[in-house]
């Protein structure tokens, strides 16, 4: 398995502080990876680092085997649809396709025109007059017709209504199936990603909290409920992700590879959304010295 994105000790510091610290991450090729985390967790920073829009403060990041943004060949391998899907307001849809054709050696003009036609975009219309959903589709078209190895989308559906959201993601999935791209997309809503992602990265407070294939992650996490007890008394191989207590009952989300044998617990599965929320709401005990102990699951 090759990694389309490999980060080691990656960190980015802005004037106001660290947006990303000690990030070690391998994203395998051929997957649709969801990057999820609360607002301000560093998702955009990570994606911008991957696209070469930002330069890392510490550590290294390697995308499709090269340094992001290092040259035309590298740029051609990575498609990036930035947050708010920027387009030139004064340029028409056709102008945008022309822009793509002129600036990208691997440009698939037939694909671009087919998509525009299918989406019902008027080529003569200025991008500034398009709706948010149409603009996102136009930006996605530019990203896909560039024929990259990896397509990075930063909150592509954040500005869209639920219907446009669903259409956009469906459309993205069709393109992924057709062209065999690797995709990394971010969102602060798990529901957006649940349908489309088979790989997940959870980023909280500038650090990677969890990364792995969705199936493996779901298999390794369990919700335990039973009579109230101290989570510290659990076996060492069971890592408590979140705990909530009532007077009589304790509910835990734990991570473990081993089966849960304690008969006192009622074991149930954890949904992806609950799993992510459990990681997001984990107390920020992460001091600067502490690195996330989780690694990619196989």
């Amino acid at each position: 398995m090759t990694a389309v994105l490999r980060a080691r000790q990656l960190g980015k510091k802005y004037r106001r502080g660290w947006a990303l610290t000690g990030c070690a991450l391998d994203i395998p090729a051929g997957h649709v990876t969801g990057l999820v985390g609360p607002n301000g967790a560093g998702k955009s920073t990570l994606l911008n680092l991957a696209a070469g829009m930002l330069a890392p403060t510490t550590g290294t990041i390697e995308v499709c085997g090269g340094m992001p943004g290092s040259g035309p060949a590298q740029l051609a391998k990575v498609g990036f649809v930035a947050q708010d899907t920027p387009t030139y307001a004064g340029l028409t849809v056709a102008d945008h396709l022309r822009l793509g054709a002129r600036l990208n050696p691997n440009w698939d003009d037939a694909l671009a025109h087919r998509r525009i036609e299918r989406l019902g975009l008027d080529p003569g219309q200025r991008a500034g007059k398009l709706s948010g959903g149409q603009r996102a589709q136009l930006a996605l078209t530019l990203g896909i017709a560039k024929r990259p190895e990896l397509l990075i989308l930063d909150e592509p559906v954040a500005a869209l209504d639920p219907l446009a959201r669903r259409e956009f993601l469906q459309d993205l999935m069709e393109a992924v199936a057709e062209h065999g791209l690797s995709v990394v997309l971010s969102s602060h809503l798990v529901a957006d990603l649940e349908r489309v992602c088979d790989h997940l990265v959870v980023l909280v407070a500038a650090q990677v909290q969890l990364a792995g294939e969705v199936e493996d992650l779901l298999a390794a996490h369990h919700r335990l409920s039973g009579p109230r007890r101290d989570p510290a008394t659990l076996p060492a191989d069971q890592q408590v992700i979140s705990a909530s207590h009532t007077d009589r009952q304790t509910t835990l989300v734990v991570r473990t590879e081993a089966p849960i044998l304690d008969p006192a617990w009622t074991v149930s599965t954890v949904g992806l959304e609950d799993l992510v929320l459990a990681y997001m709401s984990r107390p920020a005990e992460a001091g600067p010295g502490r690195r996330p102990t989780l690694e990619v699951l196989r």
Binding site: A51, M53, G69, G71, P72, A73, L75, A76, V78, G79, F80, A82, Q83, D84, P86, T87, Y88, A89, L99, G100, L103, N104, P105, N106, A139, L142, K146
Partner: peptide, 17 residues
């Protein structure tokens, strides 16, 4: 200001060019 640098700098043309 329009954010379009993030569009154009991610085509296969380096920023310097």
């Amino acid at each position: 200001e329009a954010g379009t640098h993030r569009l154009v700098w991610n085509q296969s043309v380096t920023r310097a060019r």
